[in-house]
Amino acid sequence: MAGAQNELSVAERRKRREEERRRAAESTAAAPAGAEVAIAELANNPRNAREELEGLEGLARTYSESGVLQSLAVIPADVFKAAFPENAHEVDGARYVVIGGNRRLAAARLAGLERLPILVNRKATTRKAILIAAATENVAREELKPFEELATIEELKAELGTYDAVARALGKSAGWVSQRRRLRNLQPEVRKALEERVEGMTIELARDLGKIKDREQQLAAWKKERALAAARAAEPGSTKAQVGKPKVAEKLPQQSSSGSAGSDLDETTKERREACAAAVAAFDGDASRLHIIALQLPTEPDEAVALASHWLGEAGIGASALSLPSLTGDEGHERQARAALALSLAHCEIHLTSCAADDPAHARAYLDWLATHAEYQAPEAAHAHTA
């Protein structure tokens, strides 16, 4: 999609932008914000990430009694068809396409309603803007299932270029995006367990299991967690509510070390290093700021290489990505970028562990990077210590 856009000439792109502005201007003559339109004039969004619209019967009963109180977010059908010509035939005959409220539209049809309140989005006139608007609506209302969120992220990444850009577009952190991307690593059996909501499986556990790249290790970890859930269910006085929430704090076997380099580290450091390990496995953005921080730190090289190697091994990338003889191109850009990330994190982590109090500026810069790009929230004490 994005590649085809880049192949357009300057003149063609200019012409397309002018056409988009013209359509946007014409759309202002359509229904005013907050108006009601005939339900027959509305089409479901063919690009909607929600694969199944659940609970329609109950919602339809509510609508029959009280009507639809919340307006549907829509765009003019002509704007949608111009942005998505491959889906144009799916919205023929409609005046508007719903980009926020497809479930409400389906329930209203089931209830036999004739008119619905709408809010026309005047700004979403390009392919990219429409995708972002629809995704933001779904994410903000928490209407997507885990794999639907993942599909939305991947579609936006194809359009925007990077996962950092996706996070910014959705108003989320890079860590939020990377958490959901872990689901790509789930083995079919684990994925099925999440989709079918098997007892003992939660989205938090699934994301933890997604850290484990090795198939057999991931399945063994899931088997252990499922057995623990069954044991909890068998305990006297246990309830479904208790069973449905396995303690994610019980670390999975394959992640227990996370580069801790021994059991003498405090819990805060261990949690930080687990965030580092997760970043090495999943981060796919620009780590330039982290590299700048790391390059200024006087850290023992061998110690940093050892810690980075551990994280690379856990991520399934292999410590050979740090081997100097292999840096002639044999390792590939992706592995080298991941190795550079691991090495920078290791330098920062070792420096913070040994002398945070003596160098609060670098410590805070590193903690800020972790909080922004990895799954880590520094304790208040750590913030005060580095302030």
Rank of each mutant, 00 (worst) to 15 (best):
K211A: 13
G112S: 09
R23S: 01
L343N: 04
A49F: 11
L119T: 14
C276T: 09
E148D: 03
E142M: 13
K270W: 08
R272L: 15
A151Q: 12
P379N: 10
Q5G: 12
A158T: 10
P46T: 08
A2L: 15
G262Y: 08
T299W: 07
E52W: 11
E195K: 07
A35G: 09
A275M: 08
L56A: 04
W176K: 00
L345Q: 04
N87C: 11
Y63Q: 06
L156A: 01
G93M: 06
R115H: 11
E26I: 10
A30R: 10
T162C: 03
A365F: 01
E189R: 15
C276R: 05
L194C: 06
G318Q: 08
W311D: 04
E331P: 00
A135V: 09
Q336I: 12
A169E: 07
C276K: 07
T152I: 05
N138Y: 05
E52K: 12
S326R: 12
A365Y: 02
R23F: 09
K145S: 07
A221G: 09
V305K: 09
K224E: 14
V280Q: 06
S71L: 11
V97H: 04
E137F: 14
A382S: 13
P85A: 04
L352M: 10
F80G: 02
R103T: 15
V166A: 02
L295D: 15
S178G: 09
H89K: 15
C348N: 02
E148A: 02
R272S: 04
G101Y: 05
L105K: 02
D368I: 08
L105T: 01
A193F: 03
V97E: 01
R23M: 13
A33V: 15
S263K: 15
G244E: 12
R21A: 13
E137M: 10
V243M: 05
R104H: 12
E380P: 00
V120T: 06
A342R: 03
R215W: 06
Q179S: 11
A234L: 11
S288G: 11
A167R: 07
A77H: 04
E26F: 05
P85F: 02
W311M: 02
R338M: 01
H351T: 09
E54A: 14
R127Q: 12
T28A: 13
A108T: 03
R47Y: 01
D208P: 03
A4P: 05
E155Y: 02
